[in-house]
Design a protein around this nucleic acid. Structure first.
Lengths: 191, 191
DNA sequence: GACAGTAACGGACCGCAGTCCGGTTCTGCA
DNA sequence: TGCAGAACCGGACTGCGGTCCGTTACTGTC
């Protein structure tokens, strides 16, 4: 399957459903920013959005899904840059440089939205590996790592070092710069 | 701090406390084996052990702690082999061979107790990085990886590929053998 | 062996994520 | 414009992990 098609297509929805989706995302974004992702319950989000709890869960599945939806816009910018942006992040540069550029960009993204990313990855077991964004990055890395012994495994391994849980735990111990440098070094070593 | 001291010392406890600890571990082990870790609630464990819920939580902290306690005996065997066992797992072999031996042994351990390990790592956020066992393995790998640019980071990275969540998600996609081979390859690449 | 002090006990209690289903609202079609 | 049926709504409900605190039972001392 080509990389393009792994990007989630927007499903057609009824007018009231769209209105509610926007209300929920706005309320959730505001509450999360104000009190922190962990401290806000789904009841509070539903109440603030003026929406029933059932609606909230039917649309987003669980708290991880809501976090993923909030990250979606931000992540699409990154995906777009990888697909059609200028090198070295976009196509045209050698794999080694694209790998560096990807790790840098992804670490930036991660550090900026760490709490939300952790929530999107850990709220339900295995959530991280199911969402479309993960499959997208995995595919991208598999292509960049073509030629190694097992590119699919190597891609998973590089992403493992970029998991929100992992980076979050290492942040206080090593600081952002060692994390960034280490992830670059490991990705190159995998190549 | 020397590697030896990272092993959790057994705290002295009152007679009734010891009795209850054993009753809980037995009941939990039986229930988990019978119904699966996910499907058993802490209330059920407490009831089966003939113990109050408060007792259960005071002793083990949370469900992750209970899982970790159940794994403890098994993990100590591995730790013992690394500290004082024969090479290449124990001391005496070159770092590269010890690294391979460690990855092999740890993957064996992981595949045998995957559900329990996942529970011990994911029940509360960051739990994996707090438990003594993680610090032990991290220390061991840091020593084996001495000489690389950032041994501490590299050790964390190798452990990231051995996280229960990660291996569990990859298992159905890649199968155990590619996971084992990939982890070995990555650990060598980090060296 | 009795006693005081303290560590451990246990179950009622809380807030949360997630489910269910009777009622409501929208939309495509005639 | 009126209608039929599907899609959506919402809040009461469930079971869970985790906490709290009045009660109980162990242990070291005299």
């Amino acid at each position: 399957m080509p990389l393009e098609l792994l990007r989630t297509p927007p499903p057609k929805e009824r007018a009231d459903a769209a209105r509610n989706r926007i209300a929920v995302l706005e309320a959730a974004g505001r509450l999360f920013a104000e009190h922190g992702v962990e401290a806000v319950s789904m009841d509070q989000v539903a109440a603030a959005a003026g929406v029933g709890k059932g609606t909230l869960f039917r649309r987003f599945g669980d708290k991880a899904g809501l976090a993923a939806a909030l990250l979606d816009a931000r992540e699409r910018v990154l995906q777009e840059a990888v697909l059609h942006g200028p090198p070295p992040l976009g196509p045209g540069a050698p794999a080694e440089r694209r790998l560096d550029a990807f790790v840098d960009a992804y670490v930036d993204y991660l550090l900026e939205h760490l709490a939300l990313v952790r929530m999107s990855e850990t709220a339900s077991p295995g959530a991280r590996y199911r969402i479309g964004a993960y499959r997208f990055w995995h595919r991208h890395l598999t292509i960049l790592l073509a030629g190694t012994a097992d590119p699919e495994y190597a891609a998973h391994a590089v992403l493992a070092t970029l998991a929100g849980e992992h980076v979050g735990a290492l942040l206080s111990e090593l600081g952002p710069e060692r994390i960034r440098a280490g992830a670059r070094r490991l990705a190159r070593a995998a190549l």
